[in-house]
Structure formats: C-alpha cells, structure tokens
C-alpha cells in the first residue's frame, strides 16, 4: 500500500530530473569549491529546505486530521522578530531563540483553538493566517528590515560542506522519523487522526498530541522563516513565506498522506517537497517565466489526483471501502 503510494511521486521526481538532464546536460554535475558542494541538485535541496521543513510539521498536523494554514504567516513573524531584534541589539542567538519562542506561543495558540475549543483546524489556523502577516508588518513597521549578521546568515546561506539549511531540514526529517516510529507517537497520532473520540476513551492524551503537532508545525515554520530571511538577510513581512503553506500541503498530498488524517508517510512528504522544488527549478531551466510555475504546479496536482482516482473513485462509489463493506456485511 505504502509502496504503491510512494511510486508515483518517486516516478514524477525522476521524470523531472531526467527532463532537466536532457535540457541541460550539466544538470547532475557537482563541484567542490572551498570545501563547499555546488550544483543544481544542491540548489534544489537548498531552495526546497524551508518547504520540506514546513511540510514535515504539516504532515503530522494532517495526520491528526488537521491542517495548518498559518505556517507562512508564522514564518514571516519569525523572520520579523529575528531581524528587528538583531537590528536593535545585534545579538543573533537571542534573536533566533526569541523568534522560535514566539513560534511556540503561536503554535500553542493554534493548538488551543483546535484541541481545546474544538474549532475546525482549517478555520482555526485561518485566523492566524489572516492576522499573522498583519502582526509581522506591525513588528517591522511596514518596512523591509535588513540585517548584516554573519551568524544569522549561516542559517540560510551558510555551508558545512552542504548548505546548512539542507542539513537542518534533513536532520529534522530523521529526528521526526525516529521519534514517531521508534516510539508509539506515530501510532497515537494516527489513532487520533482516524478516530479522536475513540482515542480519548482509550485514554490517549488526544489534546496533548494535537497540541504537540501544532506547536511542532509552528516551530518548523519558525526555523523555515529563519532560513528564508537569513538567505536574503532581511525580513519582508509581506512576501516571506507567501504561499508556502500551499506548497507544504501540496508536498504532503503528493507524498500520499490523505487530508482526511490517519496514515501518513514522511518519505512521501520528502519526495513531495523535492518534486515541487524540482518542478520550480525545471521551469527556470527550460526558460519559462518563473510566475508561470503555478500552471505547472496546478498540472501536478491534477495529475496526482487523476493517478489516485482509479483507486479512489471506484472505492468510494462502489463501496469497497473497508468500513462500508463491513457495514454492508453486518446486516
């Protein structure tokens, strides 16, 4: 099941890479310069790092039947907090810690609305999505705050053989995979996602788990926000992380995790995020204006939906969904 789910995003990724190779034969070339690795593939990974990180948090949120629309706004707030703090004190470390602290609070807020007040996630996080950029603008007073701090610059543009942003995202991926699959967290998240009430009655701390995933998602967005603003050494409250929530959700969906919650695939999300980023790069490579990338993204969504349809559509119209069969058999 999981295998076949991962097959299509993997094929799409390979196809895109091959297309790039045909258009640009030097596409796979990597070169080492001053101990730093460069090349188109590295660029894809680096540019995709924030999306991957946010998609990671999004995967867990979606697994609990939720969705977090506010991630882009949270990323913008993180950048705004860091840059305004650095601009006034010059202390990058405290600035970043402060920004991540703010993100945790924002995640707690989302989690509170969803887990405690029981508001539909899409709406609960819409509140912060709407208001969040306003808050970021408030922090930067509507300006683009530029900073020049070498430490801060490392997060988004630094190298440690590979770009540091890649390392952060991959480390987060591995950590999440270990934590969710080597402990019972993954199963409990899925259990809450499939049937929250049954989980509550079984003694699962649904609230805590839901709360945790929203805080984690906000934290991921915060780090992604740091990467984004570090990369350009500036906080742009208006456009930092704009539409990144859509890319992240797309990555999760392409990766085969259903928006209805339950079973999720981190590998799928990785493939999804890479596919989206490769697509963007491909569009550059073949010389189409970057704005038109959106058309291709739409194409990918539609293709993914069509590919899933032969399995999904008859399953829903003809009733061989496990639960429905059971229902039918039970009478």
């Amino acid at each position: 099941m999981t295998r076949t789910r991962l097959l299509w995003p993997a094929l799409a990724l390979v196809a895109l890479l091959l297309l790039n190779l045909i258009v640009e034969p030097s596409f796979f070339e990597l070169r080492l310069q001053d101990g730093h690795l460069f090349g188109s593939l590295v660029d894809i990974l680096r540019n995709g790092a924030p999306t991957l990180l946010i998609a990671l948090g999004m995967t867990l949120v979606i697994a609990t039947r939720g969705i977090d629309l506010s991630v882009g706004a949270v990323a913008a707030i993180a950048g705004a907090v860091t840059c305004t703090y650095i601009a006034s004190t010059g202390d990058a470390l405290t600035a970043m810690a402060l920004a991540l602290g703010v993100c945790v609070v924002l995640g707690l807020w989302n989690g509170f609305l969803v887990a405690v007040l029981g508001i539909q996630p899409i709406i609960a996080t819409l509140v912060l999505m709407t208001a969040g950029r306003g808050i970021a603008m408030l922090l930067t007073e509507g300006q683009i705050v530029t900073v020049d701090n070498p430490l801060f610059r490392q997060v988004g543009a630094g190298f440690l053989f590979l770009p540091i942003a890649i390392l952060i995202s991959l480390a987060a991926l591995v950590a999440v995979a270990l934590v969710t699959r080597r402990t019972a967290l993954g199963m409990l998240i899925e259990s809450v996602g499939v049937n929250p009430e049954a989980s509550r009655l079984a003694g699962v701390r649904s609230r805590t788990i839901i709360w945790t995933v929203y805080v984690f998602a906000a934290l991921c967005s915060g780090v992604a926000g740091l990467m984004i603003s570090s990369n350009v050494s500036a906080a742009d409250a208006n456009s930092a992380g704009l539409w990144i929530e859509m890319d992240a959700i797309l990555a999760v969906v392409i990766g085969g995790t259903l928006l209805t919650g339950g079973r999720y695939s981190l590998t799928g999300t990785l493939l999804g995020a890479l596919t989206i980023q490769t697509l963007t790069t491909t569009v550059y490579t073949i010389g189409v204006p970057p704005e038109v990338t959106l058309v291709f993204k739409a194409g990918v969504v539609i293709i993914v939906c069509l590919l899933q349809a032969p399995r999904v559509a008859p399953a829903l119209t003809r009733a061989p969904q496990p639960r429905q069969v059971e229902e039918a058999m039970a009478r």
Binding site: E190, S191, V194, E197, A198, A202, G262
Partner: peptide
C-alpha cells in the same frame, strides 16, 4: 464512532 480506530490494524487497536 467511539470504539475502534477503523484504519489501524487489529494489533494497534488491541494495544491502544
């Protein structure tokens, strides 16, 4: 509605 977690396995449901 509030007993089983339909999409999980028998094992996961039992040890939940």
């Amino acid at each position: 509605a509030d007993g089983l977690v339909a999409d999980l396995t028998v094992r996961d449901n039992m040890i939940l």
